[in-house]
């Protein structure tokens, strides 16, 4: 309850900051639409020559793309700005002000800001999946909607945990600008149907960096192709990465307060 109240205070102040930069809103819209055009174009060309890629049809692949947009928007809106801020705080020494506050440092670091303009990407994702689904005349039942929501949340948790682990490394190395690249490269891999990759890469993306749970699994849930057991696996993976990342964060913080100048 207290944390919900804090969250609303945090987000309100952060939205106010975003309002100071209105131009960002318009460039975001343009960038999103351009990106969408390119991706849809690339997909339709590929599918023009091959009716199915890795067992996925064009409309199914479009669902995948829409989830990619949706997830990308959610990450850029809620996760990325905070993770970037933590890295900046470590470099500037202002992480101290977070550690001085009588609330969980992980909570404050993870939820301090929201990038409201990235809502554009979220809406593009929602719009695209809505469009693809109605085009195919599909009806999303309550079960699919529920499973989709849960797997999507699990995907976001996995991205957050992965990123938090990488951010924690800055407690030792201070400057790690390329970290964000690692996150995005892994994430990009999830844009295409996982079955198109060779088996070794597919296994890496499933078990080492669980990218499948970020985009493919929610897309399968939306298409009604996901079994209940996979839903449970997804929840289990999300929970364990979260627990692991939080433990690593606490360990890193101990090192930070033990060694920083």
């Amino acid at each position: 309850m207290r944390h919900l109240k804090l969250l609303s205070v945090f987000y309100r102040s952060s939205i106010q900051t975003d309002m100071e930069y209105r131009a960002d809103f318009f460039t975001r819209i343009i960038a999103s639409l351009l990106g969408l055009l390119m991706n849809v174009g690339a997909f339709s060309i590929a599918f023009h020559y091959a009716g199915k890629i890795g067992g996925w049809t064009f409309p199914q692949a479009m669902v995948l793309l829409s989830i990619y947009y949706l997830m990308d928007g959610l990450i850029e809106m809620f996760i990325a700005p905070n993770m970037r801020a933590v890295m900046e705080h470590v470099r500037q020494g202002t992480l101290d002000y977070i550690l001085l506050k009588p609330i969980s440092a992980q909570f404050m670091s993870s939820f301090r800001t929201v990038n409201i303009w990235r809502l554009v990407n979220v809406l593009v994702g929602v719009g695209l999946s809505f469009y693809t689904i109605t085009q195919r005349g599909l009806v999303i039942g309550a079960t699919e909607a529920f499973m989709f929501a849960v797997t999507l949340a699990c995907g976001a948790v996995i991205v957050y945990s992965f990123w938090l682990c990488l951010v924690t490394l800055t407690f030792w190395f201070v400057k790690l600008d390329n970290i964000e690249q690692i996150v995005w490269q892994a994430f990009e891999a999830g844009r295409y149907p996982i079955d198109v990759y060779p088996i070794w890469l597919k296994n890496t993306l499933t078990y080492v960096i669980p990218v499948v749970f970020i985009i493919t699994v929610p897309a399968q849930a939306l298409a009604g192709k996901l079994s209940m057991s996979y839903l449970l696996v997804s929840m289990f993976v999300a929970l364990s990465t979260l627990v692991g990342a939080s433990a690593f964060w606490r360990f890193g913080l101990k090192h930070y307060t033990g060694a920083s100048a």
């Binding site: 109240k5 804090l6 020494g93 009588p102």
Partner: peptide, 29 residues
């Protein structure tokens, strides 16, 4: 407690100080 460091800011840069105060009110209850 409170620690003020002359060379580091805790206030949010882009918005009025008052908004930072409101955030602190919530944090310190």
């Amino acid at each position: 407690i409170s620690l003020v460091m002359g060379n580091r800011n805790q206030l949010m840069w882009d918005i009025p100080a008052m908004d930072s105060f409101v955030v602190n009110r919530a944090i310190y209850q």
